[in-house]
Design a protein around this nucleic acid. Structure first.
Length: 219
DNA sequence: TTCCCGACTG
DNA sequence: CAGTCTGGAA
């Protein structure tokens, strides 16, 4: 069996399904991705909750809201000098690109949507792919710091280049939306609970037998 | 003090 | 490639 698939099976068996964003709305996934950078997800959840409570969790509402108002609600997510304006600018873009119709926005070839996302302020490779995968239903493999850490520790690859890592997974894991969504969620879960940057808990790791780092590490 | 599911600028 | 940006939790 392919190692990348084997890792997936073991993580899924150990942690179980993570049931992420698809349960929520596509728009929430977009806002979450834009606010997530360099912040704990806990704070992003609070920010989204604040927006919803204020009736601002909507394309038009956010597009029209003054930046200071948006800032008041998302301040907890940090980087308040950039994120609020980026969220509003992105919503304005959605309005004049597809009249705020997300199905229409995402209803184009993956590469086209990805290029459009990357052209937006504050949207880099990870944010773009995260939006594609969890809001747009496009089967692209999301790469983040956790993916890189786990992948290099295990010895799946050595590169640190975004596209190279992404290609690795997309060539070894069947291109299925649900699988890609679940795999990324599992990597995040694994990186936070056991495969931490410092003090990893290799003794309890479900993929230790597949891991170059874990096998060599003493208890 | 460090770190958190990055992106941008110089 | 390195510095910078943010607040909050540990």
């Amino acid at each position: 069996m392919d190692r990348a698939r084997h890792v997936y099976q073991r993580l899924l068996g150990h942690y179980g399904p993570q049931h992420w964003w698809p349960a929520e709305t596509a728009f929430e996934a977009i806002v979450g991705a834009l606010l997530m950078q360099q912040t704990s997800w806990r704070n992003v959840e609070v920010a989204i909750r604040n927006l919803r409570r204020a009736g601002l969790l909507d394309v038009r509402a956010l597009a029209e809201a003054p930046v200071p108002v948006i800032r008041r609600h998302v301040r907890i997510a940090g980087l308040y000098r950039t994120k609020p304006a980026r969220v509003r600018a992105f919503c304005r873009h959605l309005l004049d690109r597809c009249d705020g119709d997300l199905a229409r926005y995402f209803g184009r070839p993956t590469d086209v949507v990805r290029a459009d996302l990357l052209a937006q302020d504050g949207v880099g490779p990870e944010t773009a792919d995260s939006i594609l995968l969890y809001a747009g239903g496009h089967p692209v493999f999301v790469v983040d710091a956790y993916t890189e850490r786990i992948g290099t520790r295990i010895g799946l690859f050595r590169t640190r280049e975004y596209r190279a890592i992404q290609n690795f997974f997309e060539q070894h894991v069947p291109r299925e939306l649900a699988t890609y969504q679940e795999y990324h969620a599992l990597l995040v879960r694994h990186a936070k609970t056991l495969c931490r940057r410092t003090n990893p808990v290799c003794e309890e790791c479900p993929i230790r037998s597949l891991c170059d780092f874990g096998r060599r590490r003493k208890r």
